[in-house]
């Protein structure tokens, strides 16, 4: 039987059991991608009370989880559909959602359309500490929307995204979702990976692996 080489579909699985809530993914993202002060492509939200690292419940019956959140690279991406300028698009190779900053008109329609609130806008002239361009990609100008690119510049060099390789908890698995044998496909399949806001029909390429069942004394 002739093998048809399927197109790659990059995806990520985030293991909520392993996630430490340390934000290393977020910081390395900022550094890798020259993200300026004030903006974050990658965040680690607290599933709990009303503040960072605050639990839910009443002492001592408490609960807290971490929820790393960045662009979900939806297969049916609402941001791509609404972008009037074709600035946001779905790249065929890997199915990643990217922004062509040279086309973005800065209308922020994609921000309104994104169910995951992961897009950020360069409201001001980007300010950096340190005050030079760090990281491995060119920074974005004022007035455009930006977000996680799955470190497309690394993918194109055959490397995994920085948040994946830098996660000290080894909580992120990256790979080709169209390859049933890739670690990410296996993890999603065997651990029942779920997509965020699945009911929105956006079909994210980012999956979450749920926490283990605890065994209290």
């Amino acid at each position: 039987m002739a093998m048809t080489k399927t197109r790659r579909k990059f995806g990520m699985a985030v293991d909520l059991e392993r996630c430490l809530g340390c934000w290393t993914c977020a910081v390395v993202c900022k550094e890798e991608n020259d993200v300026p002060m004030g903006l974050w492509w990658n965040r680690v939200l607290t599933e709990g009370g009303d503040g960072l690292d605050k639990p839910d419940g009443t002492y001592p019956h408490l609960d807290l989880d971490y929820l790393p959140l960045a662009c979900q690279h939806c297969e049916d991406a609402p941001c791509v559909k609404v972008c009037p300028a074709e600035a946001t698009y779905k790249r065929e190779d890997g199915g990643i959602v990217l922004v062509d900053y040279s086309k973005c008109i800065g209308c922020r329609y994609c921000m309104a359309a994104c169910p995951y609130s992961v897009r950020v806008f360069n409201w001001a002239e980007p300010q950096r500490i340190p005050d030079f361009s760090y990281g491995m990609v060119e920074g974005r100008p004022r007035g455009v929307v930006e977000k996680c690119t799955f470190c497309v510049h690394r993918l194109d060099q055959g490397l995994e995204p920085s948040c994946v390789v830098s996660c000290p908890a080894q909580a992120r698995i990256f790979g080709d979702l169209n390859d049933p044998d890739s670690p990410v496909s296996v993890a999603v399949r065997e651990r029942g990976g779920t997509q965020m806001l699945a009911d929105k029909g956006t079909h994210p390429q980012v999956y979450y692996l749920s926490k283990r069942r605890k065994r209290p004394l």
Binding site: P36, G38, L39, T46, E47, L52, V120, W123
Partner: peptide, 10 residues
């Protein structure tokens, strides 16, 4: 969820 979304400025 906390801490929320960034305000967007320095």
């Amino acid at each position: 969820r906390a801490p929320g979304q960034s305000w967007g400025r320095l």
